[in-house]
C-alpha cells in the first residue's frame, strides 16, 4: 500500500514535469533569453552600421562599453512620455469598446442552445482565416469613401475589428461555465433582469473580463501596422517608434530601451489591475 502510493506520487511528479517542462523551456528560450538580450542591448551604444557598438576595445574616438545614455534620453524628453500616453489611450479605448461590443455577443453564444454554440464560436474566429493585413486593407476601402481614412477613428476601428475575437472568446469560455441555477435562484428571490446581470453574471465573469482585456490591451499597445496603414499624421504609437528605431535609424539600443520601458509599463498596469481585482473580489 505504502509502496503503491510512493510510485504513484513519483509517476505523478514525472507527469507534472513532462507536462510543465516543455512550456517552461519554451518560455525560457523565447521569452527570457530575448528579454535578457534586450536588457543588455539597452545599455550599449549603437554601432555605426546598425547593431551594437563593441563592448570592449572600440576604435579610438568611438563609443564602446556600457552606458545609461539611452535611458537618459528617454527620461529627459517629454516627447516620449507623450507618445506612451497616447498609446495607452488608444489601447484603453480599444479595450473598452471591445468589451462593450464583445459582452453581449459572448452572452448570446453562452445562452444559445448547445448545438449552435460551436458554430457561433466558429463564426467569430472565421475572420482569422484571411490574412490580418488583407482585412486591414479592406477597411481602407470601406473607410475611404467616407473620408474617415487616415484618422484616429480609423485606427481605433481597425484595432477593435482585429482584436474583438480575443475579447469574445475568453468571455464566452467564462460565461458558458456559469450555472443557470444561480439565475433561477436570483429570480426566485425577486431580482429583476438587470439585478440578475449586475449582481450575479457580471461579478462571476470578472476573470473573463480581465483575461480578455489583457489579450486586447497588450497587443494593441505594441501594434504598429494598423496605425501605419489606417492612421493619420499624428497617429504614431510607441510600436511605430520602436519599429522606426530598429529599422529606420538602425538604433538597436534605443529600440531595446523603448521595448523594455513598454514592458515595464505593461507589467505595472497588470500588477495594478491584479491588485484592484483582488480588492474588488475581497469586497464582493
Amino acid at each position: 500500500m505504502h509502496a503503491d502510493t510512493s510510485t504513484r506520487t513519483r509517476s505523478g511528479r514525472l507527469t507534472q514535469w513532462l507536462v510543465s517542462g516543455p512550456p517552461f523551456v519554451f518560455l525560457c528560450i523565447f521569452f527570457l533569453v530575448p528579454a535578457a538580450i534586450m536588457v543588455v542591448a539597452s545599455v550599449r551604444y549603437p554601432g555605426e552600421f546598425g547593431a551594437l557598438a563593441p563592448l570592449f576595445g572600440g576604435r579610438p574616438g568611438e563609443d564602446s562599453g556600457i552606458t545609461f545614455e539611452n535611458y537618459g534620453v528617454f527620461f529627459g524628453d517629454w516627447i516620449y512620455a507623450q507618445i506612451f500616453a497616447k498609446s495607452f489611450g488608444v489601447a484603453l479605448a480599444t479595450t473598452l469598446i471591445c468589451l462593450v461590443m464583445a459582452y453581449p455577443v459572448a452572452l448570446l453564444i453562452a445562452r444559445s442552445p448547445r448545438k449552435y454554440r460551436d458554430l457561433m464560436v466558429l463564426l467569430c474566429v472565421l475572420p482569422f482565416a484571411s490574412n490580418f493585413l488583407v482585412r486591414v486593407y479592406a477597411w481602407m476601402i470601406i473607410l475611404g469613401p467616407f473620408d474617415l481614412l487616415f484618422s484616429r477613428f480609423a485606427v481605433i476601428v481597425g484595432m477593435v475589428y482585429v482584436h474583438l475575437p480575443f475579447m469574445i472568446l475568453p468571455l464566452y469560455t467564462n460565461l458558458e461555465k456559469h450555472d443557470p441555477a444561480l439565475l433561477d435562484a436570483a429570480q426566485d428571490l425577486g431580482a429583476n433582469a438587470w439585478n440578475r446581470f449586475w449582481r450575479v453574471t457580471f461579478p462571476l465573469s470578472l476573470p473573463g473580463i480581465f483575461s480578455g482585456s489583457a489579450l486586447v490591451f497588450i497587443p494593441v499597445l505594441g501594434m504598429f501596422a494598423i496605425p501605419e496603414i489606417l492612421g493619420g499624421k499624428d497617429d504614431w504609437l510607441v510600436g511605430n517608434l520602436i519599429k522606426e528605431s530598429f529599422l529606420g535609424t538602425r538604433d538597436w539600443p534605443f529600440g531595446s530601451m523603448l521595448s523594455l520601458m513598454l514592458t515595464a509599463a505593461v507589467l505595472a498596469i497588470a500588477a495594478g489591475a491584479a491588485w484592484l481585482a483582488k480588492r474588488g473580489v475581497a469586497r464582493a
Binding site: 534620453v73 516627447i79 507618445i83 522606426e244 538602425r250
Partner: peptide, 21 residues
C-alpha cells in the same frame, strides 16, 4: 549618404516630434 549614428538618433528624435505633434 548614410548618416553617423548620433545624427541618425537626432533625426529620429525630430521625426518622433513630427509624428506625435
Amino acid at each position: 549618404k548614410d548618416l553617423p549614428r548620433r545624427e541618425r538618433r537626432l533625426m529620429n528624435r525630430f521625426w518622433t516630434e513630427i509624428k506625435v505633434r
